[in-house]
Structure formats: C-alpha cells, structure tokens
Design a protein around this nucleic acid. Structure first.
Lengths: 343, 343
DNA sequence: AATAAAAATTTACGCGCGATAACTTTTACT
DNA sequence: AGTAAAAGTTATCGCGCGTAAATTTTTATT
C-alpha cells in the first residue's frame, strides 16, 4: 500500500492516468474494464493510498454492494458460526456484509429491517425469529428488498428459503435410538420460538407411527431464548415424575439437551449407552458445544457449509438476475447423524 | 408511521412547515431545536414516512454517529453477550453501532479496522485479539479514530482501556479453593491468545506465594481459539500423568474449564466438593455456559454491565469532549465469586 | 488493410444532505 | 415595554461520486 493520501477519485484518476468514469467503473466491477487499464489502476492503488468514499459511492448507486445478515440470536454460537460462514462468502464475492442480531426480540427484528432499508442493501440473508416475528412487517420489507430466508421458514415470505430438513434430522435420531435401544420420548418446549420445532415434533410422531410405536411428547414450559435453562428445569420436572415410557429421550434441539443433561447430572441420573446408564439422550443440531456436554451429545448435524453456501448463492442469483424469480424455491439439506456417548 | 413516502428532506421540511436546515439540525440532535418545532417535526414524522438518507448524511458530516464494535471471536457467547450489551447502549445514546468479529484472525482484524476507517466512525470500541494482534497497524488506526479498548489491553494503544481486574478474579478463586480445601494448580494454555491469561498466571503465582504455597502451573499445548478442545485434550494428558500436587485445579478461563470437565467426565473422574469427588475444578469468567457444565462451574464473574457501561461512557466522553484526553485511563472492575458445584 | 465492435474519454448533470452567512422572527429577562 | 440572545429562515455552495450521452481510441474480425 502507498503512503500518499489521495483525496478523491478525481485526483486518483489523474495520478493513475485514467479517466474518472473508468476508474469508477473499475471500483464497481474490476472485470468490466480492459485488462491493461485494470493493471494500470491496480499499479496506482499500490502506489497511493486511496479508497473510494463509501457514502458518496452508495448515494447514487442503483444497486449497492451491501448485504444484510440478520440472525435471531447471536449469543447462540450456532448462529454465530453460520453468520461467520455467510459473512465470509459475501466478502469473497466482493460484497459488504453487515451483521445484525435480533437478540430474540421481535420489535428489534423489525427495527433492524427498517434500518437495513436505509442502507439500500442489494439483498438480505435473514434468519427470522419465527413464531414471534411480525410477519406483516417482514413481508412488507421483502417486497422492497430481495431477501433469502434461512434456518427458519416463514410461509411465502422472501424470494427463497434455505434450511435443513427437519424430517431428516428426526428420522435418523429416532431410527437410531429405536434400533439400538428403545423408541424415545420427544422433549420440547410447549410454545417453541421456532417453526422448525413444530416440524421436528411432526417428524417424530410420523416416525414413531411408521415404526409402530406410540409417540410420547413431553412439553415443558418456558418463554424466550434461554433454552438451556428451560431444558434444565423441564428435565428436573420430568425426572421427578418419571412417567416416560422408555429410557430414551430425544430433545428437539441441542440447547434444550444441554440443559437436560445438566439436570441429569445434578440428580445423579447416569446418561449414555453403558450398562449402568438409566437414560439415553439424543438431540438435533450439532451445536458447537454439544461435543463438550457430559456425556458428549449424540445428535444430528446441520450441513452448515451447504446451507450457507446455497443461501448466499441463491441471493446472488437473485441480485444478478435482476431479482424476482416468480417461484419461491425451498431448499432443505439433510442431516448427518453424529454418534457420541449420550445415546 | 405514515403511509406517504417522502423523497427527501426538502420535501419533508415543506410538509412539516419547517425549513430544511432546521429539520437537518433536528435529525443531527433533536435536543438542539425548540420544543415546539420538535413537536411539529415529530408530528410530521408520524404522518409521513421519511428517514434521512444515511449516505448523504454521512458524506459531509465532520462527525458521524457511527460507532464500530470489534470483538475477537463472536462465536464465543461471552463476546456475543458483551457486544449485545454495548450495542444497546450505543443505540440508546443515539448512535449507530456496527458489529464486527475478527474471528480469531489477526489479518482480518486489521482489515476490519481498515474498512471501519471508511465508515468515518465517531469512535470505536475495540476488544483486540491480543498477542497475535498487529500492534503497529492498530496503533496507526487509533491515531485516526478515537478508540476505547476493552476486555484485552494493549499497552499504550487507544485512548483508554476498560476491563476486568484479573488479580481480583484469581485471588478470589485461589483464596476460596485454598480455604475450603487445598491450594489449586493452575491450568492454562502454554501460549495464550490473550494478555489477560498472563496476568492471571502472575496473579496465581503471587497469591500462592502470599499464602505460603508452592505455585504449580500446568501449561497445555494448542493454538487458536478452540479453547474447549484444547482444554479437553490438555486435561486428558494431565489426568493421565496424575502429577499434580493437590486435588484442586484452577483453570485460567471458563472455556478451558468446559473442556477440562468434559475430559474428567470421559475418564470417570468425579469433580466437585462431595466426599466421593477426587478433584475440584474452578475457573474464571462466568461464561454463559458455565452454569450448565457437569458439574456446574465455580467461577469468578465479570461485571459485564459495568465494563460495557464504562467502555461506552468513556468513548462518548472522548467523542463529545473533542477527544484526546492526554492521559490514558485504565479502568478495571473487580470480579464476583460464583459458587457452584465444581469446587 | 478495412471495418465493426468494444472500450475508454470528455463533458455535464444531479443525488441528498451538511455547512455557512446574512437576515428575520421568537423567546427570555430586566 | 424594551432589548439581547436564541432559534428559525432563505439562499447558496460543495461533498464525492454515479450516470448518461456523445465522441474518440483501441481491439478484434474478416
């Protein structure tokens, strides 16, 4: 990088010996100028310290290079990881991602979308809160900005949805537990924040019926996004009552399972597949911490990479093809069973 | 909110019956206009749908309302939580925070600062990676932008530092373990990413010496930010060798401890203060997940609230007082001991 | 070498707002 | 009521760049 500070594009164009409009074209899309001019501009970039003014750039541009990434709850490492993955892909493609978290708050979620509008984003990758989301407002937003939903679907909203196949998750965990032990009870929140939870419950019931067993759903109380604590308290109640038909529990998601295992430990209930274990616990998500629970959690893993890759690719296709595809694609990726000690 | 879209401030000013420069003043600082005009503008805001164009706003402003928040590793819920706290405080004060994560990568850290410069931020709240950070580049950045460092200090860099008092953490955990059992060995990474780790080790040695015991530091190998895995592997080695003088372990931080406890469980080493326990494990940080380890982790808690409050306040003081205070304040907040089952 | 197509240049305008200066109106206070 | 200070108004400029049209130069094709 250079040492001489260059004030504006006019000056930089003069220094590089190229006209300003061409330099402008270069910054908008380096591939749109001839290789020889590109080389001259890049040589000048090495020599002088110049970056176009972002604010002036975006003011009159019809399509900015800004991408909004919105996740429901960033303190959940699952979303932090997927956000990171998506963020990197955007940067690699020459876009400028900005990360937002709704922090579990539906009003904040709408405020974020409002603020995003004024950034004139080329597109938005959006994992909604789910049940609590203000769908009318979100729909309004999606009419103005090309949006790809991920992780959590809202029917008909956004240009596309990319997520994981909940049936694939639950069918594998149920099948595994049944085959290697007993058919599990299903442990979940009574009023889940996320629509995936409902699909998982339905998949559980479907699978159990298909395999010829009676489904048994345990629903615990609790609101908000403190899933571990909800799981822990719920587990204490469940373990006290002891009215589950088998010694197998399938948690709707890993964060509930983390709480569940913590309660088991507190009560001295040994979990795992050893002979002296009284309970087997499995779950879904392959949360970054699920490897470190006690015992380590058997779970079904999201295909992080493919979900984020396909989300980003879908959005870029939308952006580059002038948007509005007509049909709303819903892409689901299958899960991968991760066997650990808990079941 | 209104329904009629208003194109620009000119138009909005006409609709509200106020001159454009006054409306401009209002958006810059609502308190700077008379209460009666403020009411008229706000009435018009209710009636019409108008928001100033961010890009045009920031283009010519000497001081924007942008605040950069940079954390080293967002997939660590500790940083996610503190970032959220800081973010909210910025918004409440009328600023526009943008969140960035260095993802443990020193080059990315510098890229983020570079990108931040072009956002002309009024100020930056910055938790550096630490040892791996490119200090020369960071120092250069801090010369251009008022920056408050938090969590992790870099000597002399930035206008102020706000963090936790590592001696307060370690002295309490060491004192507690010693008083209620035996003096602990200290478990840490050989080449810690973070300068706090060095301060904690020093504090441990100081405390042990003061109490009349021989310090015993266990250093495990491992690079990067996968602390849990490093802790787990390190613990397996340590537990195999069994050459620790007492049955008490103090981990440098909670994420290492999470891995340590996971290894203990895997080996059937019972941790806690019950009679049948062979090991006590404590740690420092009060990580959001430390409540759910098995057993729940005894640790020393950061004062999240005060650290983030004071960081933000320091920065705003810098910004509003025209910056450059002359002396670089370092503020450390004490820890609070959290007793749980592990020690 | 002739011709068409592609790329770069020149020129000019405008985006939406911040900032300033000179002037007028409203408020606060003796 | 009189006066100074505070706040609002009108007018105008400029920020740094995108964009478009008309023109010229370069490259590719036969």
């Amino acid at each position: 990088m250079g040492d001489v500070k260059v004030k504006n594009m006019e000056e930089f164009a003069a220094l590089s010996g190229i006209s300003r409009p061409t330099v402008s074209k270069y910054f908008n899309d380096p591939g749109s100028v001839r290789a020889s001019t590109r080389a001259r501009i890049e040589a000048a970039l090495e020599k002088y310290d110049y970056r176009p003014n972002i604010f002036a750039m975006n003011q009159n541009r019809k399509l900015t290079k800004n991408i909004g990434i919105v996740v429901p709850y960033l303190a959940d490492p699952f979303f932090a990881e997927i956000a990171r993955n998506i963020e990197q892909r955007c940067i690699d493609s020459g876009y400028r991602p900005t990360l937002f978290s709704s922090h579990g708050n539906p009003e904040l979620e709408i405020e974020i979308l409002d603020a995003l509008q004024s950034l004139k984003p080329a597109g938005v990758l959006f994992a909604p809160l789910g049940r609590a989301s203000n769908k009318a407002e979100i729909e309004k937003f999606c009419k103005n900005v090309p949006t790809v939903l991920f992780d959590s679907n809202l029917d008909g909203i956004g240009e596309a949805f990319v997520g994981s196949d909940n049936f694939s998750f639950v069918s594998q965990t149920v099948e595994y537990m049944t085959r290697t032990g007993a058919p599990p009870s299903f442990f979940e929140m009574r009023t889940p924040a996320n629509p995936n939870a409902n699909k998982r419950r339905a998949a559980y019931i479907e699978m159990m019926t298909r395999l010829g067993f009676e489904p048994h759903v345990i629903q615990v109380d609790g609101e908000g996004w403190a899933f571990e604590e909800i799981g822990r308290r719920g587990a204490h109640k469940v373990l006290e009552d002891k009215n589950h038909p088998t010694d197998a529990i399938l948690c709707s998601n890993d964060r509930l399972a983390i709480g569940f295992l913590s309660a088991c430990y507190e009560r001295g209930v040994k979990v795992g597949r050893d002979a002296d274990c009284v309970l087997r616990v499995a779950s879904n998500d392959d949360h970054p911490f699920s490897k470190f629970t006690c015992p380590a959690l058997t779970t079904a893993a999201h295909d992080y990479d493919r979900v984020s890759e396909h989300s980003v690719d879908s959005l870029f296709e939308l952006i580059e093809n002038g948007k509005r595809p007509g049909t709303r694609a819903e892409t689901l990726f299958p899960a991968r069973l991760i066997l650990r000690a808990s079941a």
